[in-house]
Structures are given as structure tokens and as C-alpha cells.
Design a protein around this nucleic acid. Structure first.
Lengths: 151, 151
DNA sequence: ACCCTTGATTTGACTAGTTCAAAACAAGGG
DNA sequence: CCCTTGTTTTGAACTAGTCAAATCAAGGGT
């Protein structure tokens, strides 16, 4: 019996290897993981795994479309398995947390910029910067130091 | 008589120095320049200028709002003087050329994602990826090798 | 015009994230 | 079971950017 990932890898023309399955496992558990998180996580199943191997695996996955690479400004690249639906991201300025968002207006409104200056656009990448709920709360805590938070 | 930049720097509470004026000069001439381009360009006026100084100048300019930093994925950061109008960017996948675009729909449509997942959003960063006119042409040239282009 | 304070620049070392290249290895077709 | 070829491994290297201490200079006060 073939697991889903084994199947998907073969479909994509990639060999099925332990590093690849481990990386896919970690990505399933952490929908927006950076290379380092993936290395650490994948070592649970494959202790000798090297960072370079993970970079290689990720490049392979991205190139066949099984994974997508996102690069929030000023932070290490993140990888996700949710592909092909042109969704966007919310990034917390404070802690770096990332959440998915679908585009607000219709399917891909931003794919129609007012003036393309001669460019042929194939992707609109949208990053919403802000503060996640947790960081809003700790920011409020710090500026107030009131409320029921004992000790 | 004070030049515009001298004035603007003082307004922002920054001292007027040669490195700063040089960097501003280069940015006027290259609306989307990376740190390296700025160093090279600014050395025309100030030959001993070091990269670290340029980073310092850029950080100062960005922090007072005279410049803006943009970080296209997979490329060094770029800096521009056009600030405060929430415009977005077209980036060429092939040559890295950057052009400005205003947002298509209304003032800031993308600031209203469908589900903010608890985030308080303060900026929507939009990058349109595609091929600039020049790269479309060279791509066509390579695949065709027909047409009137003599030798 | 000079001095002094404070911010800016310089110098130099250093880091994180990522990429490159060559050798050893293993997936999976025959 | 072997062979081919794609993968992983090992190890070094590279780039963009950061940090910290020492020197320097802008520009306000006198």
C-alpha cells in the first residue's frame, strides 16, 4: 500500500526517499515552516539529516509544484504545501507568525494592476503586515500593566 | 540657499552629511537601487564611502520616512524615495527590473482581506511577478530566431 | 570664530541563510 | 541482482546584512 505522499512524489516523477517523506511530514504538521524548523523536525525520523539535504528536498518539491516557497521580507524563507490556489499571507511584524488568507475581492483582483508598464504579470503576491492576536495582547500588557494578570 | 534634500534632512531631524546627500542623489537617479548600486554610485561623489555607512544612511532615511525599503523575494533589498502613497511593485522574474504600480481597485482594496485571523493589518504589500517588456522580447527571440533582426 | 555635545561615519570582525561542487549512496527499472 | 541515474552527503564557500568600538564632524551655543 502506498501512502499519499509516496504516490504524489512518484506522480511528480521524483524518487521516494526517506528525507523527502520526513520533510513532507514536517510540512504537514507545520504549515509555514522555515528550513531550520524542517531540519529539526525531520531529524525526529531521520537523525542524521543535514541542512543541505533539506534544501535539496525543498528545491525538488518546489520545482515540481508540491510545495511553495514564501519569503517574508527580513525573515528566512518559509515553505508550505498549500499550492495552486493563489492564496496570500498575513505576517506578524512582532513574532513572525504567518496565517493564510484568501484574496478579498473575487478570485485574483490584484492580478489586474492599473498600469502594467509593459509587464506580463503571472502572479500577484500579497503580504499583509500587522500584529497577530497574541502580540496585540502582549503589547497591551506592556503598555498598561493593569488587568487581572497575577504575577 | 538650501537644496531640497538638505532641507528635507533637517526637517526630519537628521544632520546633513555628505554620505547622506550622495545616497539621496543616487536614489534620485535610480528609483529602485540596491545597497551595492548605491555604494558604487555614491562613490562618484565620495570615493571612500563604505558599504556600512550606506547601510547606516539607508536605515536613517527609512526610519524617518524619507525612503522605503522593498525586499523582493530572492533578491537583495531595494530602496526608493517614493514614500507615503502605498504603491506596489512589478518585478521581472528574469532580469529583476522593478516598476511602480498604483493599486488597481480603489485606494487600498487589499487592506481588507476576507478573514484576518485575528491580525490587525497595517500594510498590504503587493508584488506582481512577471516578465518585463525587454525580457518578453528576448524570450521570443530565443524561441523563434525568425523575424527581421539582422545578425 | 571657536568649542563642545552628540550624532554620524569609519573600521573591522562577524553572523545567518543559502548555494555550490564532488564523492558516496540508494531507488527502482531491466 | 545489477546498473543507471537521481539523491544524499560532506564540506567549503559566498552574499547580504549586522554589530560594536573608535574616530570624526555637524551645527548650536558662546
Amino acid at each position: 500500500m502506498e501512502t499519499t505522499w509516496t504516490h504524489r512524489l512518484r506522480e511528480a516523477g521524483l524518487r521516494v526517499t526517506r528525507p523527502r517523506l520526513s520533510v513532507l511530514d514536517v510540512l504537514s504538521a507545520h504549515p509555514h515552516a522555515d528550513a531550520d524548523t524542517i531540519v529539526t523536525g525531520a531529524r525526529a525520523q531521520h537523525p542524521t539529516l543535514s541542512p543541505q539535504t533539506v534544501y535539496g528536498v525543498l528545491e525538488a518539491l518546489v520545482s515540481v509544484g508540491l510545495a511553495r516557497r514564501i519569503e517574508p521580507a527580513g525573515a528566512p524563507a518559509l515553505f508550505e504545501l498549500r499550492v495552486g490556489d493563489n492564496h496570500h499571507h498575513l505576517v506578524c511584524r512582532s513574532c513572525g507568525a504567518v496565517a493564510d488568507v484568501d484574496c478579498a475581492v473575487g478570485a485574483a483582483p490584484c492580478l489586474s494592476p492599473s498600469d502594467t508598464a509593459g509587464f506580463v504579470v503571472d502572479e500577484a503576491e500579497v503580504v499583509f503586515w500587522g500584529l497577530c492576536r497574541r502580540c496585540q495582547l502582549s503589547a497591551a500588557d506592556e503598555s498598561e500593566t493593569v488587568g487581572g494578570t497575577s504575577a
